[in-house]
Each structure stands twice: as structure tokens, then as C-alpha cells.
């Protein structure tokens, strides 16, 4: 197992309020890492720091042995091509067809010709279990669950080495939630991508995660593989686990 990404003591505050108070962890290649925590603990902020939408106040993000946290906007293009963020909302472009939505990143970050691009778009659409008929539609014409899948396809088509999911199942019904989680698992294994999932769903974290990190109030309170989390003594983790037990019984 080789280390692909490392967060070193990341700190970030918004107008005086400290959201991340020194976060450090490592991500191994091919793992599915879940970052769990209650709402408002800075989980999404962490992901946005990685792709450069936000910059950390201090600390370093090491990707392929280089600190990317102080990269310029141009240098970040290389990072964004390889670390794709799937947003909490579908964030599809309303004015474009679904085809153009998926092709958007390919046109800008890669040098594919039209033929390869077309193949790439259709492949990634197939990978998220959507039919090709919908490609000519506008985002408003398909359901919310389909929009979510499409936004995954939009990131997937770039063949990133790390896929980042920001609360991928928020606002979905239990059936779609299950389907999206299975999709994340399948995609990670099939393309051998590393996935970092921000979520508050302990249930599916236990199902598919290789490594779990629990955040509380801007700090890591527990991290480890599934077995370690299951016998954790940290109160917040116990609450989360209790939730899962209640749901199962």
C-alpha cells in the first residue's frame, strides 16, 4: 500500500471562527476513506481545501510528495484533473445538455479528440447505470437521483486517481442512498481509484469503507479501519454506532 495523500495539521477559520483545528491524516492508494461527523464540523471544508476552492490558513496537503496547499490557480489544474470533487448538490449546468455537462471537464482538462471524448462520455454514463437516451436532455428534465449520478459521471469521466464525494447521499431516499453507496464501492474497485467520502452515514461507512475518520468540532476524535471503529470508546463514535444498531433491529 502506498501513500497517495497526506494532510498535515490543516487549520482553517472563517471570520474568527476556527472550523478546522489541526487535521492530520494519510490516505493510501485504492482505499475508500470515510470522513464522518455531525453537521457543521468542517467536513466539506476539508475537501474544498484539497481541490483549492478554499485555502488552508496553515498546514500542508501533500500529494505525490509535493505540498499543493499554496499552489496558484493554474498549478491547481493538474490537481483538479486528478482529484475530482462530486458536490453535495448535483451542481449541473442548467443551460447545457447533459452531454455537454459531462464533456465540460474533458474539453478543458484533456486533449481528447471528439471521437475519444464521445466514447469517454458514454462509458462514464454507463458506469453510473444511466441510459444514453437522456444525454440530449437538460438537467431540469431528470430526477434528483439521476442528477446525482450524472454529477458522479461528470467527475468520473476524467479518470481521476482520487474521487471526492461531499455528502453524496444527502436528500436522497433510502433506496437511492443504498444504490449510490454501492455505486461508489463498485467504481472504486473497478477503476482502482481512491475515494474520500464525506458523510454522516455510519451505516454505509461500516459497509464499504476501508478506513474511517471521525471528526468532531474541527478535530479528529477517532480514526482506523472498520474493526477499530466498531470497538471504539469515543462517545461520539458510540452514538453513531448505536444509531446503526437501532436502525438494524
Amino acid at each position: 500500500m502506498s501513500r497517495i495523500l497526506e494532510f498535515q495539521n490543516i487549520k482553517k477559520s472563517f471570520s474568527g471562527r476556527e472550523v478546522l483545528k489541526g487535521i492530520s491524516f494519510e490516505v493510501n492508494k485504492g482505499d475508500i476513506v470515510f470522513i464522518l461527523g455531525t453537521s457543521g464540523t468542517g467536513k466539506s471544508v476539508l475537501l474544498k481545501n484539497l481541490v483549492g476552492l478554499l485555502r488552508p490558513d496553515s498546514g500542508a496537503i501533500i500529494w505525490h510528495d509535493k505540498d499543493i496547499s499554496q499552489y496558484s490557480e493554474e498549478q491547481y489544474l493538474e490537481v483538479r484533473k486528478n482529484c475530482c470533487l462530486v458536490f453535495q448538490q448535483p451542481a449541473l449546468f442548467d443551460s447545457m445538455t447533459l452531454y455537454e455537462n459531462i464533456a465540460f471537464g474533458l474539453r478543458r482538462l484533456t486533449n481528447l479528440n471528439e471521437e475519444e471524448l464521445d466514447k469517454q462520455v458514454r462509458d462514464s454514463l454507463k458506469a453510473v447505470d444511466l441510459k444514453e437516451e437522456i444525454l440530449s436532455l437538460k438537467p431540469a428534465a431528470i430526477s434528483y437521483g439521476m442528477q446525482k449520478r450524472l454529477s458522479i459521471a461528470r467527475s468520473l469521466c476524467l479518470n481521476p486517481e482520487i474521487l471526492l464525494f461531499d455528502e453524496p447521499t444527502t436528500g436522497l431516499d433510502p433506496v437511492s442512498t443504498q444504490a449510490i453507496n454501492q455505486l461508489i464501492f463498485r467504481l472504486s474497485r473497478k477503476y482502482d481509484t481512491t475515494s474520500i467520502v464525506v458523510s454522516h452515514d455510519m451505516h454505509c461507512a461500516l459497509d464499504i469503507a476501508d478506513y474511517i475518520i471521525v471528526l468532531d468540532k474541527g478535530k479528529i476524535v477517532e480514526q482506523g479501519d472498520v474493526d477499530k471503529i466498531k470497538c471504539s470508546e469515543v462517545p461520539l463514535v458510540k452514538d453513531f454506532l448505536q444509531e446503526v444498531l437501532d436502525a438494524n433491529s
Binding site: 451542481a91 449541473l92 465540460f104
Partner: peptide, 17 residues
């Protein structure tokens, strides 16, 4: 509404300005 629905962030993430 493009901004609050994260479309602007998505544009940045997909390599465009």
C-alpha cells in the same frame, strides 16, 4: 443561484475559470 447551487465551484473544479 449558480453560486449557491455550487455550479461556479464545479466550473473551477472542472478546470475552467
Amino acid at each position: 443561484s449558480m453560486k449557491v447551487s455550487e455550479q461556479i465551484d464545479a466550473i473551477r473544479c472542472l478546470g475552467a475559470n
